[in-house]
Computed example of a mutant assay.
Amino acid sequence: MITVDFGIVPIGTEETDLGDYVSVAVQAIKDSGLSYELTGMGTQIEAENLDELYEAVQAAQEAVFKVGANRVFAVLKIDDRRDKDTRGLKDKVDTVNAMIK
């Protein structure tokens, strides 16, 4: 299972409000069919392989360009763990929460 923390920032926009840009990027992730969770600082994604992950990220970037961004800065933090079959985002949170006293 591959887990990803994904952030996308359009550059050169006229306003500081980026909701219109972020929403089309998240819609592209949603349309990919991948499991994702939107947070206040980015989007977390689960993928089975890098090809489907990169395809979804490419679709998100292209969506932001289509709504008027001239430049897009994206950050990916990828955890590609292959020693366990099902180690998704929820599993990671549950593990840490179980350790907190």
Rank of each mutant, 00 (worst) to 15 (best):
Y21V: 02
I11G: 06
L38F: 13
L53T: 00
I8E: 04
V24Q: 05
D83F: 02
Q58A: 11
Y54M: 09
A56Q: 08
M1K: 14
F73M: 10
F65S: 12
G7V: 08
I8V: 15
D5A: 15
R87I: 07
T3G: 08
S35F: 03
V96Q: 12
A25P: 07
V67F: 01
F65Q: 09
L34W: 01
T43Y: 08
A25T: 01
V67C: 03
R82Y: 07
G40E: 12
G12E: 12
L34A: 06
G88A: 01
V67M: 08
K84V: 13
V57W: 00
Y21K: 01
V26Y: 06
F73K: 03
R81C: 11
K90W: 08
I45Q: 04
E14D: 10
V22C: 04
V22T: 13
T16E: 12
T95Q: 15
N97S: 11
T16R: 05
K77P: 06
K66D: 12
G88D: 13
D94K: 10
T13A: 10
E46C: 02
T95P: 03
A69T: 05
R81I: 08
T86K: 14
V26L: 06
E52R: 04
I78N: 11
V64W: 00
V93G: 11
V72T: 14
Q61H: 13
F6H: 04
K30P: 03
T86P: 01
F6I: 08
L38N: 06
M1P: 09
K101H: 07
A59H: 03
E14K: 10
V64D: 06
S35T: 08
D17M: 05
K66N: 15
V64P: 05
A69E: 04
G33W: 06
T95M: 09
L34K: 00
V22N: 08
M1T: 12
G68H: 04
G19E: 13
L76N: 01
I8G: 02
Y36G: 01
E37N: 14
M99P: 05
A74M: 06
K84S: 09
E55H: 00
V93W: 10
T16V: 15
F73W: 12
D31R: 01
D85Y: 11
V75S: 15
G88V: 09
L89Q: 11
E14P: 14
G68R: 14
G7K: 10
A98C: 12
E55A: 03
D5W: 04
K30I: 09
A60Q: 00
F6D: 05
K30T: 06
R81K: 13
P10K: 10
I78K: 02
Q27T: 04
E14A: 14
A28K: 06
P10W: 03
G68Q: 07
E62C: 02
A63N: 04
L38K: 11
D83Q: 12
V57K: 00
A25F: 03
V75K: 15
T43D: 02
S23W: 07
I100C: 10
